[in-house]
């Protein structure tokens, strides 16, 4: 047993992720053919994937923050002279509709940037809320075990054996459309992933020598959880959060598409896409272009999550 490099008893290896912040080290230069999945891009390509997807995400964030300031979007305004104009049209008021206009003469690009604001806000807020609930549940469950662990994990099992979109649709239909409600609904259907990842981290970490050492020095439960265990669990939690962010944005768009997401005053991409459905034959751009925008963002989060996971924690592939 090579404790100098492994640092983990072999029995734990299935559960333990490499310690947080463990730099590129061995991950960067795998021995050829050691891993059955060898050829998953790592090293330089892995870094390129991370940088590339981060750049795309950054563009969206900038567009979401700055866009609505530059291109005013008023959800209730109508301009009948400018309705259903194809992309690249010069509108009567002199502005250029790069992505065309919708059925009430609104600029689609302006709507998309406003939608990016809504979608990203909802996504991040959901992750924070679901993360808080999930990580707390996972910490408590993994650290204390016992009946609390049993109850929480049974609850997680039940939720996983239930299609989450159904739960979201049902709760959203009762609560009614609002940004806050969407965040609540999506958090309820997403806490489980965080709880499971955190729990498996805690289970592995609490047996580690450094935690024992801290305990021997007289650290209390609170100190052990917040100072010893939680910091070492952060890396996998962040990886999961990145992957989940794409899923949450998709789920929000689906709810809004069904009319159960954000209200008409704060239109998100899903709603713009739904509105364009009635005009498919004469104005294809209303549905199609926001959809491409949404797909690129979700794909970027997917690529970023995959790359981060391969780099920091390949074990999470099965989650």
């Amino acid at each position: 047993m090579d404790r100098t490099t492994g640092q983990v008893p072999p029995t734990d290896q299935a559960l333990v992720a490499p310690p947080a912040g463990d730099p590129a080290g061995p991950v960067d230069t795998p021995p050829p053919d050691a891993d059955p999945l060898a050829g998953r891009p790592r090293g330089t390509i892995g870094r390129l994937r991370i940088i590339g997807s981060l750049v795309v995400v950054a563009c969206y964030v900038v567009a979401a923050v700055v866009g609505p300031i530059l291109l005013q979007y008023d959800p209730v305004a109508t301009d009948l002279k400018a309705r259903l104009q194809p992309p690249g049209t010069r509108l009567p008021d002199g502005s250029l509709a790069v992505f065309g206009t919708d059925q009430v003469g609104q600029d689609v690009l302006a709507q998309m940037m406003q939608g990016a604001r809504v979608s990203i806000t909802v996504g991040v807020a959901t992750l924070v809320l679901a993360g808080l609930i999930g990580v707390t549940a996972g910490l408590v469950s993994g650290y204390f075990g016992g009946w609390l662990d049993a109850v929480l994990m049974r609850l997680a099992d039940v939720q996983l054996t239930f299609p989450s979109i159904l739960l979201a649709i049902f709760i959203a239909s009762i609560l009614g459309p609002s940004v806050v409600n969407v965040v609540i609904v999506l958090s309820i259907s997403n806490w489980v992933t965080f709880a499971r990842v955190t729990r498996s981290q805690v289970l592995a970490l609490k047996e580690r020598d450094y935690v024992d050492a801290t305990r021997t020095l007289g650290a209390g439960t609170w100190h052990l959880i917040t100072r010893s265990i939680l910091p070492a669990s952060i890396a996998p939690i962040l990886v999961v959060a990145t992957v989940e962010l794409g899923h949450v944005i998709l789920a929000e768009a689906s709810l809004s598409f069904l009319g159960l997401g954000t209200p008409a005053s704060t239109p998100s991409w899903g709603m713009t896409i739904a509105n364009g459905r009635d005009y498919l034959s004469n104005a294809w751009w209303i549905s199609t272009i926001p959809g491409i925008g949404l797909a690129i963002l979700v794909i970027s989060f997917g690529v970023l999550g995959d790359a981060l996971r391969d780099r920091f924690d390949p074990r999470l592939r099965s989650m």
Partner: peptide
């Protein structure tokens, strides 16, 4: 990757 990340309702519309 594409089939997993693209919104299904949007693919349907396309």
């Amino acid at each position: 990757l594409l089939s997993q990340s693209m919104p299904s309702f949007w693919i349907g519309i396309v």
